[in-house]
Design a protein around this nucleic acid. Structure first.
Lengths: 141, 141
DNA sequence: TATTGTTATACTCTATAACTATA
DNA sequence: TATAGTTATAGAGTATAACAATA
């Protein structure tokens, strides 16, 4: 049998669990022709109509250089609408089609999150989530 | 203030924490001219001299098509040695230089893992790690 | 037939540099 | 000066398909 020198490393475990969750998410979103990053952008715009592209990027930790083509693709597909706020900022809003696909996105995400929660024993669930969210908030750059 | 519709989603929190840890790892390994995936391969070979490329890939969840160039680069740099086991398998072993860089790799990894552990309150630490490792083992594909 | 290893290729996310236009 | 947005480009990880050689 082969020895795994990484089995006791929480950082590596985080990486593997995250990768598995992301793979399932990508698969679930594929029938909507959405990528994971696009799905989070849609969810943020849906919850914050008129939000700015740079605000979305800051919230999600996506650099502005990477937001540009991402938002452009969503606009090209007619899922979001860009309206000038001032000379350099554009408020983002979901179109009707964008709202429809965002509802479906949320159901894909919710099912995945439920599956994940179900795999966490009830006894440790509260402690696990508390630590996880604290870690996520701390390095919210 | 902008509302974050993802702040209660454990899957998304996993993704953000993992991304932050990976970014720090990549930065720490850059002075060794190693990528994260390469560092894990070195650690596994170091702990299992003579291990096969396909065994390493299975353990780490790296497809064989992606293992090939990764191992080739490590061999080209003289960090690992490939010896034929049978006609189609090659046993992988660290060279002297490979052992030296693997020791440094381990210290980079260990420091990062210590930092991560230190950010987990002692009260919840055991429960958090138990769940995390269980999740990682479950989807060990 | 199944497995090992390889090549080619494409996709997704991320990172940096350089730039325009506006506040 | 600082910020919003864009373009170009590169790096890293991962995925599939197709293949040769071997068990």
């Amino acid at each position: 049998m082969i020895h795994d020198p990484l089995e006791d490393l929480p950082g590596y475990a985080l990486r593997r669990v995250s990768a598995a969750v992301m793979a399932k998410l990508a698969e679930g979103l594929s029938r909507l022709d959405l990528r994971p990053a696009e799905s989070t952008v849609l969810l943020v715009i849906g919850a914050n109509p008129g939000v700015t592209q740079s605000e979305v990027g800051r919230l999600l930790g996506i650099a502005s250089a990477n937001m540009a083509p991402l938002v452009a693709r969503l606009a090209d597909r007619g899922l979001i609408v860009r309206e000038a706020v001032d000379g350099r900022s554009q408020g983002l809003t979901l179109s009707d089609g964008g709202r429809r696909i965002t509802v479906k996105t949320r159901s894909v995400v919710d099912e995945l999150e439920s599956d994940l929660l179900a795999r966490i024993p009830a006894v440790e669930r509260a402690a696990f989530l508390k630590v996880l969210f604290a870690l996520a908030r701390d390095q919210d750059d």
